[in-house]
Design a protein around this nucleic acid. Sequence first.
DNA 1: TAGGCCATCTGGTCCT
DNA 2: AGGACCAGATGGCCTA
Length: 151
Amino acid sequence: MNSYKSSESESGSESETKGPEVTEPDIKTVSEKMESSTRRRLAANARERRRMQGLNTAFDRLRKVVPQWGQDKKLSKYETLQMALSYIIALNRILSEAERYCTERDWINLHHDHFHQENYHPYLGARSPANADNYTQNIFSCQHENFQFVN
DNA sequence: TAGGCCATCTGGTCCT
DNA sequence: AGGACCAGATGGCCTA
């Protein structure tokens, strides 16, 4: 654009006329600094790429252990987190309920009930993040009743 | 074609 | 100073 061009030409003419004299060591220092800066940026980019790849690997591992009934399409990161949350809460509920049922038969019946697909319908039906948020809120509203943190 | 999801780059902040 | 983490911007790919 014009502004860019004019400012560029201004600085150019300034250095020609009254700018500070640039010596050979100064030029070398400036170019070395730029080179160093570029090198650091590229290294940071590579580290960030590795970091994100690590994060994605973790998401893939999480997807493998989280239920995915009838969904041929892989869960998005957001969906994976939501499903993991739902799954953990369900497992936790089973554990706490199991403590209340003394006979093995009762426990097996409970186990079957909890892992039936219908229990996850609220999440699977949540297509938009807004709906998913509502579901999360519902989950958390139950969480206070069901979770007890042990030191 | 719009919208969702994702990878990458980038600059800022905090920590060691 | 350098690394880790984060959030915003951007562009590509895919699907309804």
